[in-house]
């Protein structure tokens, strides 16, 4: 096969960094959560690639776990977003800065 594992891992790295940039640069909380999902998926891709490389099941199980945890995390994250911004004027991550020192 001419597609070696390095390509997959590199692709994963690219996706990770795109997600990272999204987290840092966007102010809509929903978009931020979506960027976090991107990062999760990048990790999943890397896991699956290595799992294929060593022909080992454990990687798949790990991906399964990651998906589950990501789902749970998204659920709770969205619940927080909903409760915080339910009656707010702006939907802006910068507005929830009441913990400033």
């Amino acid at each position: 096969m001419s597609v070696d594992i390095g390509d997959y891992v590199g692709l994963s790295a690219v996706m990770l960094c795109i997600g990272l940039a999204g987290v840092l640069l966007r102010r809509n909380p929903l978009i931020v959560l979506m960027s976090i999902e991107l990062m999760f998926n990048a990790a999943n891709l890397a896991l699956v690639a290595f799992s294929r490389e060593w022909v080992n099941n454990a990687g798949h199980i790990f991906v399964f776990l990651v998906v589950t945890v990501a789902a749970a995390e998204v659920a709770i994250g969205l619940a927080i977003v909903v409760s915080v911004f339910r009656r707010a004027q702006n939907v802006d991550v910068d507005e929830v800065a009441s913990m400033r020192g």
Binding site: L78, V81, V82, R86, Q89, N90, V91
Partner: peptide, 15 residues
Amino acid sequence: VIALLSSGIGPFTEG
């Protein structure tokens, strides 16, 4: 959630 947050406020506004 997008639908939920969009109700009653209008298009998403950012500060």
